[in-house]
Simulated assay, not measured.
Amino acid sequence: MSATDVLGGHRIVPVVVLDDPARADALGAALVEGGLPVAEATFRTPGAAAVLRRLAENADLVVGAGTVLTDRQVDEALEAGARFVVSPGLSAAVVRRCQDAGVPVVPGVATPTEVMQALDLGLDTVKFFPAEANGGLPTIKALAAAFPQVRFMPTGGITAESAPAYLAHPAVAAVGGSWMVAGDLLAAGRWDEVAARCAASTRLYHPTLEGAPA
C-alpha cells in the first residue's frame, strides 16, 4: 500500500508539532470534526512518540510519523502506531526499515540526484522539502518533466493561499502544512479554530463542497 492509499484521498496532511500527549485527544477530535482526519506527528519534541500513540488510538484518524531520521526512530514510530513514515531527507536505512515492515515511507528530496536515489530504492512518491525554500512549484514542474513517474508531496512554507496552486499540478499527490495546526492554536487549545481551518483546507481540493470559494 502506498502513502497516497493510506491517506484515503485526503490531499493535505496536517504537520503536527506537539509535546503534550494530554492535548492529543482534543487535537484528534478537531481534525476529525474538520473533515481532515490525517496527522503527521513530527519527531521534533521529546514527547512526540507519546503524542503519536495517543493520536493513533483514535480509530477515525490516519496517523503517521514525521521528521524520522533513523531506523531506530522508525521502530519507535511503528511501535506507537504510525501508519506511514515521512522523513526530511533521503536515508536508505530509514526507507529499507519501512519497506521491511511493509509501511509506506515518503523521504524528502530536493534535487534530481535524490529523486534518482529514491527511484533506485523502489519509491515513486517523495516529499519535496523544504518546498518554498527550494523554488516551490516551478522546481516541482521541472522535476516532474524529468521524472514523470514520480509524485511529490511538497512540504515547508506552504500556506492556505499557496496550496491550491500546488494541488492543481498533476505531479502533486498531496501537500503538507501546519496552518491548520499552528503552534499558537495548539498551545491555546483553540480546537474550534483547528476544526474550522481543517474544513476550509478540504475545500482547497474539493471545490464542490458547500461553502467552497467560487
Rank of each mutant, 00 (worst) to 15 (best):
S2I: 03
D5M: 07
G8Q: 03
V13R: 01
V15L: 02
V15D: 00
V16D: 06
V17G: 02
D19T: 03
P21H: 15
P21F: 14
A29P: 03
G35Q: 09
T42C: 10
R44Y: 09
R44V: 12
T45H: 03
P46F: 13
P46I: 09
A50H: 08
R53D: 08
L55I: 01
N58R: 09
A59C: 04
A59H: 12
L61D: 02
G64W: 05
T67R: 01
V68Q: 11
D71W: 09
D71E: 15
D71N: 08
L78W: 11
L78Y: 10
G81D: 01
G81I: 06
S91W: 01
C98D: 08
D100S: 15
A101R: 15
P104D: 01
P104V: 05
V105T: 10
P107V: 13
T111Q: 07
P112D: 03
P112G: 04
V115C: 10
Q117F: 08
Q117P: 01
A118V: 13
L121V: 09
G122W: 03
A131P: 00
A133V: 12
G135R: 14
K141C: 05
L143T: 02
A145T: 15
A145R: 13
A146N: 10
A146T: 12
F147T: 08
Q149H: 14
F152K: 14
F152H: 13
M153P: 04
G156C: 07
G156L: 05
G157C: 06
I158E: 07
P164K: 13
A171T: 10
V175K: 11
S178Y: 00
W179R: 13
G183M: 05
E193Y: 02
V194S: 04
H206Q: 10
T208W: 11
